[in-house]
């Protein structure tokens, strides 16, 4: 019997032979073989919800926006929207705006007209002496044209920006919000406003606020000389 308990237990071990096996409270495993305990993660299940099936919710949203605009117009113009007056001036052939100026040339200089004219982009900041750029321009690449690579220039303009993730925060968690929450002792802003805090959170919150208050106090009323002296003394 002792030989069995000393040796490593295999799956074929039968449980019926020894009555102690039936008793759940008596462990027959040698002490060294007792595995460590976990943190009891299994006692804390994750809640799940099924995937929503109501898709059309999103479709309603834009119509709400439009009715709001209509409502606004109705308040501003109770007698119905004013109709644009018939044009007294001839429309410009290029920009479509009415030419109110007496001189056509004056109109061409007007901001409204200028804004419509096609303009060159701001030149790219890439160093023009780069060997790679020289080779690419030789094959018809224009660095200022804001056109990508590929048969029809459909490629992306800028490289993907890698974003490093150095924490275990789950997907969709707002990092800033999360940090704020931690500084508030695990409570969210809404909790603080609505007073849904337990005793621990209230205590933590009080501490945080006290620290904040002390810092402000120092900033306003503190004396640099004294601080320096104290700092030297302390450090």
């Amino acid at each position: 019997m002792t030989a069995r308990t000393m040796g490593p237990r295999t799956e074929e071990d039968t449980y019926e032979e020894d009555p102690r096996y039936d008793d759940a409270d008596v462990s027959t495993l040698p002490f060294v073989q007792q595995p460590a305990f976990g943190r009891g993660l299994w006692k804390n299940p994750v809640q799940f919800v099924s995937a929503a099936t109501d898709a059309p919710v999103a479709a309603i949203a834009p119509t709400i926006g439009r009715t709001m605009a209509e409502k606004y117009l109705a308040i501003i113009f109770p007698n119905g929207q004013p109709q644009p007056k018939t044009e007294a001036y001839p429309a410009c052939g290029i920009c479509g705006e009415p030419v109110k100026e007496t001189d056509q040339r004056m109109h061409y200089l007007s901001p409204a007209h200028q804004a419509v004219l096609p303009r060159a982009h701001v030149p790219s900041a890439i160093d023009r002496t780069r060997m790679g750029l020289k080779y690419m321009s030789k094959h018809g690449y224009d660095v200022d044209a804001r056109v990508g690579l590929g048969a029809s220039g459909q490629g992306m303009l800028f490289p993907l920006v890698p974003k490093e993730k150095r924490d275990n925060l789950g997907l969709g968690i707002d990092k800033k919000e999360h940090e704020k929450k931690r500084s508030l002792g695990g409570a969210s802003k809404a909790d603080v406003k609505e007073g849904r805090l337990d005793a621990g959170q209230v205590r933590k919150l009080a501490q945080v606020q006290k620290k904040k208050h002390d810092r402000l106090q120092r900033m306003f009323y503190g004396n640099d000389e004294v601080e320096k002296y104290l700092g030297q003394l302390g450090g």
């Binding site: 890439i126 780069r130 060997m131 790679g132 750029l133 080779y135 690419m136 094959h139 018809g140 690449y141 660095v143 990508g148 690579l149 590929g150 048969a151 459909q154 490629g155 992306m156 303009l157 800028f158 490289p159 993907l160």
Partner: peptide
């Protein structure tokens, strides 16, 4: 002509430039 080579998703110009250099 690496500029107009017909790729399904062409890379960014800067990446190609770097590779050439």
């Amino acid at each position: 002509d690496l500029v107009h080579f017909d790729l399904m998703d062409p890379p960014a110009p800067e990446t190609l430039m770097r590779a050439l250099e």
